[in-house]
């Protein structure tokens, strides 16, 4: 109890460290938000300057000429549909298996582990995989290969959200239904899927948001196509790859188109991810 002075010196130092630490925390947050604002602002201003109705009515132009992104929007749309058609049933099925059939079994833990790896695996590797699996044997790039690559990226998102959503439904609900003599698969399809509707939809929307902006896996699967095509067996234009090629080109008119595409894609992706979060935000306890 002797030294009030050394104690207060130490106290001051602790207060100073605390102020520095808290100051750093505030700075870090502002730092993070600063980049977000800068990136979004750039996309917004440069994209808005290049927006025009032509984007949705004309095809991608040769350098110097006027044009739009219609074929690219359409190609992206088709490939998203392919990815959703493949990824959703597989993902919900696998998620259902994890939550309802693999309870307490090692295989469940293993599949969850593998799924988590797939969730963060580099998308360019998935693209290479689809190239060796689909493009090389068939001899040409195709919209199908692009769709499959995107499906492989959508799959783990849907698996995880299905698994987590179904596991949140109380066991008593399952037991009550089973006690009525309803078979398990009916219980799952008619009760669990309905109860977990919002969660399943959120997972799917988040997954779509993720694959809508993916470029790397499309570079050597769908490639690009300067012209309109509705045939997924041929190379297909798509927004991300068009943005990539136009942004790296030396032509001003292509840069403008790339920024317009970038703006539309970013708005689409962010609306999807914010919207799906709001959907789940309504549910208490998540």
């Amino acid at each position: 109890m002797s030294g009030a002075r050394p104690l207060s010196g130490r106290y001051l130092r602790r207060r100073a460290v605390n102020a520095l630490g808290i100051g750093f925390a505030v700075f870090a947050t502002v730092f993070g938000l600063f980049w977000l604002a800068w990136i979004l602002w750039t996309t917004l201003t440069r994209g808005a300057a290049a927006l025009s109705p032509r984007l949705f009515t004309q095809m991608t132009p040769p350098p110097g000429a006027a044009g739009g992104l219609l074929n690219a929007f359409f190609g992206s749309f088709v490939m998203l549909l392919i990815a959703i058609a493949i990824g959703t049933p597989l993902g919900i099925g696998a998620g259902t298996y994890l939550s309802e059939y693999a309870v307490g079994r090692r295989i469940g833990g293993m599949i969850r582990f593998v799924n988590d790896i797939l969730l963060s695996a580099p998308s360019i590797v998935i693209g290479l995989f689809c190239y060796t699996l689909l493009v090389q044997p068939s001899g040409h790039f195709s919209g199908w290969a692009g769709g499959v690559a995107l499906a492989l990226l959508l799959l783990p998102v849907v698996v995880r959200s299905t698994d987590e959503t179904l596991r949140l439904i109380p066991a008593t609900a399952r037991e009550a239904v089973m006690a009525l003599g309803v078979p398990k698969w009916r219980m799952i399809t008619l009760v669990l899927y309905r109860a977990g509707r919002a969660g399943l939809l959120t997972g799917l929307l988040l997954g779509i948001a993720r694959i809508s902006g993916e470029t790397a896996p499309l570079l050597f699967t769908a490639l690009n196509n300067q012209y309109w095509t509705a045939n997924p067996a041929s190379p297909m234009a798509n927004i991300p790859v068009v943005i990539f090629q136009y942004a790296l080109s030396p032509y001003q008119s292509w840069h403008a188109l790339a920024w317009a595409g970038a703006l539309i894609m970013t708005v689409f992706v962010l609306l999807l991810s914010v919207g799906s979060r709001l959907l789940i935000g309504r549910r208490p306890g998540m």
Binding site: G93, A94, T96, Y97, M110, I117, F129, L155
Partner: peptide
């Protein structure tokens, strides 16, 4: 019970797709 079996087989197959996908990526690379 046949619906029961079909559903179980389907979801199990879907789960194996996840497992096989990662292995297939590694093997193809």
């Amino acid at each position: 019970p046949s619906g029961e079996r079909v559903f179980a087989v389907l979801v199990t197959a879907a789960a194996w797709v996840v497992l096989i996908a990662l292995g297939a990526v590694a093997a193809a690379m």
